[in-house]
Design a protein around this nucleic acid. Sequence first.
RNA 1: GGAGAGGUGGCGGAGUCCGGUUGAACGUGCCUGACUCGAAAUCAGGUGUACUCGCAAGGGUACCGUGGGUUCGAAUCCCACCCUCUCCGCCA
Length: 450
Amino acid sequence: MHRPLGITAGRRTGWLPPSSCALLRPMLDPRLLSERRDEIAESCRRRGVTADLDATIAARDEAQRLRVALEACSRKRNEHQAAGKQLPPEERKAHGLAGRAIKEEAAALEPQLVDAERAFEILLLGIPNFVHPESPTGGEQDFRELKKVGTPRAFDFAPRDHLELGRALELLDFESASKVTGQKFYYLKNEAVLLELALLRFALEVAREAGYTPHATPDLARRSVVDNLAFSPRGEETQIYSIADTDLDLVATAEITLGGLGSETIFEESELPLRLGGVSHCFRTEAGSHGRESKGLYRVHQFSKVELFAFTTPEQSDDLHEEMLAIEERIMQALEVPYHVIDIATGDLGAPAYRKFDIEAWMPGRGESGEYGEVTSTSNCTDFQARRLKARYRRSDAKKNALVHTLNGTAVAVPRVLIALLENHQQQDGSVSVPTALQAYTGFDRIGPR
RNA sequence: GGAGAGGUGGCGGAGUCCGGUUGAACGUGCCUGACUCGAAAUCAGGUGUACUCGCAAGGGUACCGUGGGUUCGAAUCCCACCCUCUCCGCCA
């Protein structure tokens, strides 16, 4: 096999074995538990997560003790077997009996080990990743604004929100969607369709120029892959649709399928960082989100997105995180939409995220007289996802292979960008202008008036 | 959907009938050394992953798709499952 995408060809017999599905979730390095205990305790405190570190450490030690005991037993067994190889027939029986005794000893130990490991794993899964020292401490409202670009437009007429614009310009149809599919689905019509394609195409182009290899990715993935990458082990309501009678889920983001590419892989250091860009549909159940700001296109069950994903060495990941943010900003600037960049507070971070930057675009139709609303998000997950993914690389400066770091970011999430475009670029006559950067992809510079 | 073939190390490919000396022949790729002004060719040696014990040197355990069974002992025997490929049919 050659090396598609520059990924070291591994044994691609599949993703992770289905049998290991049950408890798969990203997790922390077990060895760091005691080594960096205080740091982990601090990170949990800042995230507002309660975890019993000492119980976890005790569980790890117990599993370890049993493992050592079982290995000693296996060793004894191996030696016994080797000794019995060419035994004369008359000694066979006695040897067999002795062997059986050892076997039973091991058989007694084994389930204990399995139980101990499971107990440990359950505790470990409750512990989130470290947090970046500079991430602000606090909850959803405690983000730090890193920069603000552009100024919200002062309208000399009463601006409409994207729902009104979408209706007037015949771009959006929620009524039909609710009949056909249900709430929080939508039809795009007329120029909106071309706008979606233009946005995807444009974002892909910006990503490609930055070195991100374009991928059109599957919209479904195995449960095991989803569990390896996706959402927090904090037992939140699941965001994922499952396909009945299969082990497949609809992906909530191409992060899942792009990240899955690196599972069970050992990269060469020279091929890192590996930058991937993916177009996909995203499906989210949005369970438990009723009542949250969910007007129109803001929170929907299905949307199209261009995602950025990277596998890096530990040394590269901070820089790559900045790079992803820069790409996201480049896109927002080209779309001529005012935005600000925020450093997400520790309590609002998903378990795998070490640090997260969001871009919030100005949406004139949001709230009373316009508000910022999230349009992109980029996270550095360090080695948290890679551990379960078994995504490693050969270090040139050490004998041991090391886990890679993974990062993800949104280049374009269509519906939310659509909101920003329609609401920010609306004109007094009811039309909407198309930013210059997009015109090459849309083929028109204005929608309406109608 | 119907029929067949197969899953072994970075890759290719033995071994499976006749269970032990096979972590695994052989080839190839890669690394190191010798030869060379240098390279090619040739020759010699090395070259999986994870966990674990040890200050180190160096040990140990597990892994031949996955899980279970038989056995003192399984890549090799038995059962179940998963996956891949080929052919036919159907279809964007």
